[in-house]
Write a protein that binds this DNA or RNA. Structure first.
Length: 436
RNA sequence: GCAGGGGUGGGUGAGCGGCUAAAACCGACAGACUGUAAAUCUGUUGCCUGAAAUGGCUACGCAGGUUCGAAUCCUGCCCCCUGCACCA
């Protein structure tokens, strides 16, 4: 009943792209290349942690790789790591995480997969939930699995070794994380597993375990971690230096523009499909300073936005970006709208709703609170500081007062790239009533 | 189990009865300069009070106590580190 899957053998050029670009190491490389050339359909495994469903363009590096292979006809297998997610990947700092409920896992998995499918083909993707095999594990299975490895083997993992050396604690349960991940490979009969360089140990453990269990050991595909927009640390949500896959185009474009120049080539290499020949040109241009790096960065930003949206969106984002800093206008997708009822405010502060030349307005509202309520700033104190520092302007004029006249459509610029528009809720209500 | 050292703001880390919302450094944010880059300079960096305060509230592992007053002293507890002991 299963028809032989259509698998295409990559051309040398494609092979080059798959095995060289955005790759740190393939173990063992020759075995992997042979497998690709064999015409056999490979099962490509990549796992994710459902406790953190937000995906950024660093994750996209791996997914892009999967997509390349998927286009050749190979089978992508995505694992929802609901059990490993509960343990938390041993990173030294991370304490045991609270157990996620089934609903949380489901919800997170759903949002995550939605993002995954922006890159890989949903039709050709198999999704498996870890608990579907670990739920039936009993103590004997756990012990049997643990017995496959020794403490010495575990200590090959660098962060364990470091902590052991410096006498910092290592929870026994932390050993379970790589073990479970390794067992996943057995369960799904993976031919290749993909992961970032921080996953190296876990990936290799999967390979070993498969062999012990009589399976053909998986190849391991290790990819670089993308550096975040700060240019120093790896991209991560908790460090707030990330570009989310679901960022709106303008936001995405702007974030790319904010990366340091030193990262331009790196981003082109890892996050775009710009051909190698052009990478070479870009590299030379940067070195010789023959082009304003900003121009290259704009190209980069276009490439990235187009990848997650389309060329038109990229173009639009670029125009928005230009307007933002040359003409100081706000690009629409960076504007937060704050809806206030003018009549309620008027009542609250005992001010009349005025009509000045057809513009409805209320005399005064307290700006710090509005900023907090609109979610632009975490506290009133913070908002006051911003005002004091001249970080807020209306139409290019710095707004130094904590009080402002409530006008429908009033647009504040907060800092460099945040915008707040005041919208008259009454008016909206009126018009929506009228239109019905 | 015994002995010694330690737990301070996003991080590192000073303070060791009032001058401490807590040095310094890093980070972060804002401003100037720019290309929303880098570098540099300046400012801000617990929260609240609809100007502000020598105003209020919260904060130095947790819970009590001494004191006019405690991050600082005392008691108990928890956790971490180092050494010794124990080790089927």
């Amino acid at each position: 009943m299963s028809t032989a899957p259509e698998v295409r053998i990559p051309t040398d050029e494609e092979l080059q792209r798959i095995t060289r670009r955005a790759v740190i190491e393939i173990i063992p490389e020759q075995e992997f290349i042979q497998a690709l050339k064999s015409g056999r359909q490979l099962r490509l495994k990549m796992g994710f942690d459902p406790s953190r469903p937000d995906m950024h363009i660093g994750h996209a590096i791996g997914l892009r790789k999967l997509r390349q292979l998927q286009d050749l006809g190979h089978q992508v297998v995505v694992i929802v790591g609901d059990w490993t997610g509960r343990i938390g990947d041993p990173s030294g700092q991370s304490q045991t995480r609270p157990m996620l409920t089934e609903e949380e896992v489901e919800a997170n998995a759903e949002t995550y997969l939605r993002q995954v499918y922006r890159i890989v083909d949903r039709e050709k993707t198999e999704v498996l939930v870890q608990s579907s095999w670990f739920d039936r594990f009993d103590l004997e299975d756990v012990i049997r699995l643990s017995a496959c490895f020794t403490v010495a083997q575990m200590l090959r993992r660098e962060d364990f070794a470091q902590r052991y050396e410096s006498h910092r604690p290592i929870g026994l349960h932390e050993f379970m994380y790589p073990l479970l991940q390794a067992y996943d490979s057995v369960e799904v009969r993976a031919d290749v597993e993909f992961g970032g360089s921080d996953q190296r140990f876990n990936l290799l453990l999967g390979r070993e375990l498969q062999e012990m269990m009589g399976q053909r050991p998986q190849s391991v595909f290790i990819m670089p971690l993308l550096v975040g927009t700060d240019g120093v640390q790896k991209m991560s949500k908790s460090l707030n230096n990330y570009i989310a896959v679901e960022d709106p185009p303008g936001e995405m474009y702007g974030k790319v523009m904010s990366i340091p120049d030193t990262l331009i080539l790196n981003y082109f290499t890892l996050a775009t499909d710009v051909p190698d020949a052009e990478l070479q040109e870009i590299s030379e241009a940067l070195e010789k300073r023959s082009v304003n790096p900003m121009e290259l960065k704009m190209r980069l930003a276009r490439e990235i936005v187009a990848q997650f949206y389309d060329a038109a969106a990229a173009q639009e984002a670029e125009e928005g970006f230009r307007r933002t800093f040359s003409k100081r206008q706000a690009p629409e997708d960076l504007v937060t709208e704050y809806r206030v009822s003018f009549s309620d405010s008027a009542k609250k502060f005992n001010r009349p709703v005025l009509d000045v030349g057809g513009v409805r307005m209320v005399e005064s509202l307290y700006l710090p609170k509005v900023l907090v309520e609109a979610g632009m700033v975490p506290s009133v104190s913070e908002a006051k500081r911003l005002i004091k520092q001249g970080a807020i302007d209306i139409d290019g004029d710095v707004h130094t007062s904590e009080i402002f006249a409530l006008i429908d459509g009033l647009l504040f610029r907060v800092g460099k790239r945040r915008f707040l528009r005041i919208v008259d809720a009454d008016k909206q209500a009126d018009s929506s009533l009228r239109s019905e």
